[in-house]
């Protein structure tokens, strides 16, 4: 059980949730993701880690409610939990000094781009950010992205915030006016990533995208996340999730991501009609097994005072201290 310690809305159907997952939090690097299963009948879905706090043992996930599982997660409150969280998975973003980096983020893609943008800036790059959404209320994490970049342009499809247009428009301006870009990182919906890749292809500007293919285990075992990169099958979970945008076959990715569209519709309708069937299965901290970590690693300061008694009364709560 992984306790949700904070859950707050960022926009319509978008929530920022903070989950206690100490082992993941200590290891997480920008670009990595977790696989989450909400309850014992849940599916396994990948969610990119937006931020982590190793000291507090928490990770931050930004969840856009699209399908059944993401809507279920967004219906949860602090104090409830996710049954399974595993990670950090995938290769971290490559952080080094490129020079001028343009980070293009569309929709909730900004949640994935943000930690990488921050790390690239901290590493000494000049980071220009372009943040786009359909409309003003869907623009999220703008202040955070501004802090993680030197300049930040916001675009909306309807012009309700920032410039009217698509994220690729300011990018094309950059291409015309210079200074030269050394790296473009594009994360967002598939059509957006594809148009960025097309925009930078001719000038041969190194362009990286983070791919969100369908996964089950997230460790390379199932091959469901395979994507075509440079005519080769690559697994987004162990070879990615970041790939050279100019090599990616976005058409195959879009088709494969639509594979379960019918099932997704059925699941969502069922959830809308009877949300209680799922909400009842969502674990709560006290009826789950205790976190042995707090006992094995007292230096991590994980044990919240009021939970200690519940944990130590659990039959499995054996102090597995190697020095005894």
């Amino acid at each position: 059980m992984f306790e949700i310690v904070e859950s707050r809305p960022l926009g319509p159907d978008v929530k920022r949730i903070v989950v206690r997952a100490p082992r993941v939090a200590r290891k997480q690097l920008p670009g990595q993701f977790v696989i989450v299963r909400v309850h014992d009948r849940g599916e396994r879905i990948p969610l990119t880690i937006c931020d982590s706090d190793g000291g507090a043992g928490t990770i931050t996930l930004i969840v856009q409610g699209i399908g059944k599982t993401t809507r279920l997660i967004n219906a949860l409150e602090a104090g409830q939990g996710l049954l399974d969280v595993v990670g950090p998975l995938g290769n971290p973003s490559e952080i080094r000094v490129h020079g001028r980096v343009v980070v293009v983020a569309g929709g909730v893609g900004v949640a994935i781009a943000l930690p990488t943008a921050r790390a690239l800036k901290d590493a000494g790059n000049h980071v220009d950010a372009i943040l786009g959404a359909r409309a003003k209320d869907l623009v999220i994490l703008e202040a955070e992205l501004r802090a993680a970049s030197h300049t930040c342009i916001v675009t909306t499809d309807d012009g309700s915030h920032g410039r009217r247009g698509l994220v690729v428009d300011p990018l094309r301006e950059f291409l015309r006016t210079g200074p030269p870009m050394d790296l473009v990182l594009a994360i967002g919906p598939i059509p957006m990533m594809r148009s960025v890749a097309e925009a930078t292809r001719e000038a041969a500007i190194p362009t990286v995208v983070s791919l969100n293919s369908i996964m089950v285990d997230g460790t390379g075992m199932c091959g469901g996340c395979r994507v075509v990169v440079g005519d080769q099958a690559r697994f987004a979970c162990v070879d990615g999730p970041e790939f050279d945008a100019h090599q990616v076959d976005f058409g195959v990715l879009a088709q494969r991501n639509a594979m379960y569209r019918d099932a997704e519709r059925v699941a969502l309708e069922r959830f809308r009609e009877h949300p209680e069937r799922d909400l009842e299965r969502v674990p709560r901290p006290l009826d789950s097994e205790p976190c042995r970590l707090a006992q094995r690693h007292p230096e991590w300061n994980l044990a919240a005072g009021d939970r200690t008694s519940a944990e130590s009364s659990h039959p499995d709560a054996i102090l597995r201290d190697p020095t005894t």
């Binding site: 009948r41 849940g42 599916e43 396994r44 059944k68 599982t69 089950v216 285990d217 075992m221 199932c222 091959g223 469901g224 395979r226 994507v227 075509v228 099958a233 076959d249 195959v252 088709q255 494969r256 639509a258 594979m259 379960y260 099932a263 997704e264 059925v266 699941a267 069922r270």
Partner: peptide, 30 residues
């Protein structure tokens, strides 16, 4: 090989065995 409907045995079996996809939508994994 990347067409929709082409599976690895690992994925197909994992969905049905571990994730109970045969009982979708009672179980979420399709």
């Amino acid at each position: 090989e990347h067409l929709v409907g082409v599976y690895s045995a690992n994925e197909f079996l994992t969905r049905v065995n571990l994730m109970n996809a045969a009982r979708f939508p009672e179980f979420d994994e399709p």
